[in-house]
Design a protein around this nucleic acid. Structure first.
Lengths: 354, 354
DNA sequence: TTTATCTAGTGAATCGGTTCATATATGATC
DNA sequence: GATCATATATGAACCGATTCACTAGATAAA
C-alpha cells in the first residue's frame, strides 16, 4: 500500500530564496505579487524560479491558508452522455476563477455517494457540486458537510426534505411541452417510461405528462406507464413490453436520454419505424441526434449551463459566504421537434383508444 | 480574488486527542491502523472521531508524506464521446488503489496542455495520464515533469522524439482491417478523411489505408483524401466536398468518431443513404450506434481498457519506481461490421474508377 | 531486589508554504 | 549631521498531519 516514494526532491521556496539571495518571505511576496517588491529583486527571484523549474507547492499553501481552490463534483456516471457537457460547464467556470475540478462517479448508488463525499471532505475541497443519487431521505452526509462549512450546490435535482442551493431545470414544463406536442400531432394513446420515483425530476416529468393528459381530456392508462430507472436497459425492456402489448401506444414519451437510447434500440429490433409506426419523444438530447435518421424529438436541457452556473454559484458562496437563504436557479428546457414525431395521425387508427 | 474563507473551523487531530484523552501520536496510530494500539484506547479514539465528525486532513498528511494520492489526467475534451469511457477506466483503476483522479481539458491546444500540466505539478499529483495535444515537437513541459520525478503515461498517442510509457492502440492494423473490409465488399474508389498529421495515430490510420490500397493494387487518388483535424466540422465539410466532386468515392473511411458524426450529418443533408449510395466506415465507435439506423461499421477501440491499464501502469510506476525502459502496451482495435457497409457492389458501377 | 526485555503511548521536529511584527535601508527635512 | 518618515526585506510562528526517539510501566529473568 505504501509506495517507494519520490526519488527526486522537489525544489522548495527555500532553495529559490538561497539562489536569489533573499529571504523566503520575499520569494513568497514575489509569488503572491502582493506587496511591493523591488523590481530588481523581483527579477532576480523570477530568474531563480525559472532556472530551478520551481513549482510552488499548493499543498503547503493550502495547509496554511485553509483554501485548496478545489471543487468537488459528484455525478452518477461520466459515460452517461448527459454529464460530460455539465462537467465541462463546471470546469470552465472553475478555471475562470482559478479552481480545479475533481469529478467522481457514484453509479447512482447512495453508499458510493457517501464515500465520495467523505473523500472530498478529507481533501478539503472548498465546495461541492452534487448530482444526488436516488435514496429514501438518506441525507445526513450532506447536512453534515454543509454544517461543517463546505458549501454544496445541487445540480439537476434536489433532495427532498432539506433545503440547498441548486440549479435545476423546469422538468414539469419541459414534459408538458413535449406531451402537448404529441397531443397536437393527433396522438391519443401516449405511453410514458418514467424514471425512479425517488428522484424529484422523475416525478416532475411524470407530472408534466399527467397534466397534459388531463388538459386534453385523456384518460390515464396504467398499461401505458412503464416504470423505468433512467438506465438504458429499462428503456429497452419497457419499450419492448409496451409495444408488444395488445394495445400499444401510438406515441411514446421517454423520461431520459439513456432510456431513450434503449427505446430506439428496441424499436429497431422490433422492426418498427419512427414516425410511421410510432412517434418517439425523449427527455434529454441524444448524442449524435442530428446526424442520424430519424432525428428524434427531444426536450433538450442546457447541461453546460447547469454546470457552469452551478459552479459560479458555488464559488460565489465560497468567496462571499453562504447566503441566508439557499439560492435556486431554474432553467428552461427546450423542445426540439424532429422527424420522429413529424407524422400527424388521425384519431381513428384502429389501435387508438377511445 | 481572495475569499472570506471558512467560518467554521475544521475538527483537527488535536481535538480528537483531547476528547479521547490521548496524545496526537496515538490518534495518528489509530488512523493509520499500523502499530498495535490497545483495543480499549482505539475504541475511545474511534468514538471521539465519530462524535466530532472528524475528517482527517489529507492536505496535512500529503505535506508530510510527500504523497498526494492524486492522479492527473489530461485529455482534449470530455464532451468528445471518445473520452468518457477512457476517463472512467482510469478512475476505476485509481479508486482500486485509493487514488483520486483529476481530469482537465486542453481542447487540443498545446498551450493549454502546458498550463494544465503546470497546475497539476503545483498540486503535486503523484503521476499524470496524458493524451497529448497536437504540436510540433513541443515537449519540454513533459520531459521536465518526468525529470522532476513525476511519472507520465501517454494514452492513445505518443509524442514523437521522446520515449515515454504508453498505452496505445494498433491503429495501422485497425485501419487495415477496416479498409480491407471495404475492398472485400467490392469498393475500388475508397475515400479517406484523415486526422491532423502531427498526431502519430492520424498518420497510422492513413498508413493502414495506404497499405491496403497497395495490397489491393489500387492507385491512390488525391481527390479521395480529405485532410481533416479530428473535429466534427471538418468531417462534415470534407464529406460534402468529396461527395459533390465529379468522381465521388463509393466508400468512405473516416479517421475518427467526431469526424464520423460530421460525415453522417453531411450525407443526411445531401440525401445520400448508407449503404445504398455510399458505404461508410469510421475509426472509433459512435455514441448510440446500435440504436440508430443504419448502424455504422466502425473500428472500435477499447477506450475503457486504455484508461484502466494506463492508470494501473502509472500507479505501478509511482509505487515501484520508474522502470529502466519505458513500458508500452499496444491494444487491438476491433472491426464491427454493421449495415453501413453491408451492400456488396460490383466493380462496374459507372462512377467507379479503373 | 535488581536488571533486562518488551509494549504501548508520548511529544517534539518536520513537511513548504504564508503572514506579520520587526529590522534595515533610503531619502527627506531641518 | 541628526532625526524622522517611508519603503522593503527578514525570519519565526503557524497550519495539521506523520514519525520516531524516548519514556513509563509491566513482565520476565537473574
Amino acid at each position: 500500500m505504501t509506495g517507494s516514494g519520490k526519488l527526486t526532491t522537489m525544489v522548495t521556496i527555500k532553495e529559490v530564496a538561497r539562489k536569489a539571495k533573499v529571504s523566503v518571505g520575499t520569494v513568497s511576496n514575489v509569488l503572491r505579487g502582493s506587496t511591493r517588491v523591488n523590481p530588481a529583486i523581483r527579477d532576480r527571484v523570477d530568474r531563480a524560479m525559472k532556472s530551478l523549474d520551481y513549482h510552488p507547492n499548493q499543498i503547503a499553501r493550502s495547509l496554511k491558508t485553509k483554501q485548496t481552490h478545489l471543487l468537488g463534483m459528484v455525478i452518477s456516471d461520466i459515460t452517461n452522455p448527459y454529464f460530460p457537457r455539465m462537467v465541462r460547464g463546471a470546469e470552465d467556470a472553475a478555471i475562470e476563477h482559478d479552481y480545479l475540478l475533481v469529478t467522481s462517479n457514484t453509479d447512482h448508488q447512495i453508499e458510493r455517494e457517501k464515500r465520495v463525499v467523505s473523500v472530498l471532505r478529507n481533501r478539503r475541497v472548498d465546495g461541492i457540486l452534487l448530482v444526488i443519487a436516488p435514496s429514501d431521505g438518506d441525507t445526513e452526509h450532506i447536512t453534515n458537510t454543509v454544517a461543517s462549512g463546505i458549501p454544496v450546490v445541487c445540480l439537476d435535482r434536489v433532495p427532498r426534505g432539506i433545503r440547498l442551493s441548486s440549479v435545476t431545470v423546469d422538468a414539469v414544463r419541459g414534459a408538458e411541452m413535449c406531451v402537448r406536442h404529441l397531443v397536437s400531432m393527433g396522438h391519443r394513446a401516449i405511453g410514458i417510461i418514467t424514471g425512479p420515483m425517488q428522484l424529484q425530476n422523475a416525478i416532475d416529468r411524470l407530472q408534466g405528462y399527467r397534466n397534459i393528459l388531463a388538459e386534453a381530456g385523456l384518460q390515464e392508462d396504467p398499461t401505458l406507464i412503464g416504470n423505468g430507472d433512467f438506465r438504458t436497459e429499462s428503456g429497452y425492456l419497457l419499450t419492448k413490453r409496451m409495444m408488444l402489448a395488445p394495445l400499444p401506444p401510438t406515441a411514446l414519451f421517454v423520461s431520459n436520454g439513456m432510456m431513450g437510447m434503449g427505446a430506439l434500440k428496441a424499436l429497431k429490433e422490433l422492426g418498427l419505424f419512427c414516425p410511421a409506426d410510432i412517434a418517439l419523444a425523449v427527455f434529454d438530447e441524444l448524442p449524435g441526434n442530428e446526424s442520424y435518421s430519424p432525428g428524434v424529438t427531444v426536450v433538450a436541457q442546457p447541461e453546460y449551463e447547469i454546470g457552469y452556473r452551478g459552479a459560479k454559484m458555488l464559488i460565489g458562496q465560497i468567496e462571499n459566504g453562504e447566503p441566508a437563504e439557499p439560492l435556486a436557479i431554474t432553467l428552461n428546457a427546450e423542445l426540439r421537434i424532429r422527424e420522429s414525431t413529424r407524422l400527424r395521425i388521425g384519431t381513428t387508427r384502429s389501435h387508438v383508444r377511445e
